[in-house]
Design a protein around this nucleic acid. Sequence first.
DNA 1: GAGTTGTTTCTTGCATGCATGATTTAGGTG
DNA 2: CACCTAAATCATGCATGCAAGAAACAACTC
Lengths: 278, 278
Amino acid sequence: MLECLHFLHRLPVMPRKTPARPARKVAGAAARKMTSAERKVPADERIYAAICDAILDRRLPPGTRLQEIQLGEFFGVSRTVAHRALLRLAHEGIVSLRPKRVAVVARPSIEETRSVFEARRAVEAAIVPIVMRSVGKDLAAELRAMVQAEDAAYARGDRAAGTRLSVGFHTRLADMASNPVLAKYVRELVLRTSLIVALYESPARAAHPHFEHADIVAKIAAGDERAAARAMVEHLEALEANLELRASEASPTLAAIFGAGGVHSRTAPPVFAAPERR
Amino acid sequence: MLECLHFLHRLPVMPRKTPARPARKVAGAAARKMTSAERKVPADERIYAAICDAILDRRLPPGTRLQEIQLGEFFGVSRTVAHRALLRLAHEGIVSLRPKRVAVVARPSIEETRSVFEARRAVEAAIVPIVMRSVGKDLAAELRAMVQAEDAAYARGDRAAGTRLSVGFHTRLADMASNPVLAKYVRELVLRTSLIVALYESPARAAHPHFEHADIVAKIAAGDERAAARAMVEHLEALEANLELRASEASPTLAAIFGAGGVHSRTAPPVFAAPERR
DNA sequence: GAGTTGTTTCTTGCATGCATGATTTAGGTG
DNA sequence: CACCTAAATCATGCATGCAAGAAACAACTC
């Protein structure tokens, strides 16, 4: 029952205290393996973060079903807590949560894609000059280092690391603006972008590593606010242009999906839960 | 116990079904007074909307305590539902929700104020050209009408209506961009601005009605994207500049607050719950 | 009398039970 | 054999009970 949550390889899977009352503080040898960090961070935060991580790393594709009982069991908490995490994800447009229906990882529509990129251009273009005004050489150096690490990752073929660093570039830049509001928006939009890319990424793009981050950093270092902001906008436009926004394989006949493989029974789903049928 | 929720003058106060099971559909003459609209809109949405409305109308000042049981009773639902509404408000920075503590309407700090206005400039300046590109004469006319209504309200001294229309100008403009993401951000930021204004509004500002909305519309109609966006930025800057960002009366000695009036007992709080003490 | 400590009274955090509605499965019919 | 229908199963929505923690109150000491 837990095996379909492989995308969350978070170790601290507490064995779900006995059906009786958890006896929170009494805690024998069973529940005491809790890092101090985990004790402080509320459980719903952990679930939220785990799902975000999984989405950013593309381990959790759009359409995946997220049952609250399952999630709760995995993290050793009740449905209530899992539900809270899902609720927050739903507010941020990362999971789709319709009443009485199983929560699923969102599948952003084409329209939504347009909106998300438009918003990213607005927010991130604004962030660039803010960072430039408030920041010293040291941060420029940090950015340069990040870009180098990213390029190195792509160069050695480590796409996973490359993606992570690429995401890191945007979020770190956002953090540098010292504006929690804007930083939150960027994080949210980056997550949604991750879903979008998972759905619509053009296969051609693999061969198309982008040096645009380096370009942005260079323009930031050069001190030309206008040029730097424009570089950011163009980078995001390129990213969007590289998508193949065809009307996502809406429901390509179940046969086409499961054709060769044989249909799995409900009680033994594939490693990744099957994408939501519709 | 309910009397301190006067700011929510929402009529449908269901008398909280009997302590026994609600028997949802059976519903005698008691619970059947439910508009079809109310039946569809989930209860937590209604609570959320009611609180937002109250904040926008300045009926609900920063620091007001929002107990979930109280809220739940008022709307005829359980703590669970009220809690969900509070959770959402907390995500949007409108209420402050620290663990094990009563939720209170947020009191944005000075730093936060800066962030909110910076974000508004970024988002709303971006919205202006988007609207200009996608919109026909009819919408320009609608904007003009809104501004006229607003000015009229201020002219006749109806500040409540003026504020409402002023808020409406920003949110309607945001809606015109046909971008749900950006529209959501604007709604959120406008709400937070409302709290900020409630905290820091300079008394001088009452005498300072702003014709800047009219200016923005004029520049939009004129078709100069750059000028229009700049007008929006300047409008927001003026708004921020008009605040008196002194370190909010942190804790002006209890005596100063309750000095003349005599202290109310806990069971009979003043009409508006006293601002959170700290 | 001011400050501090102990006690009482709230209020929230979380888990769970029941009911509703969705989804799936099985069965029946043209 | 496809399509529709009915029953069973499953997952969530909501209310509530219990425990932990905070706030308010009271008493006590210096």
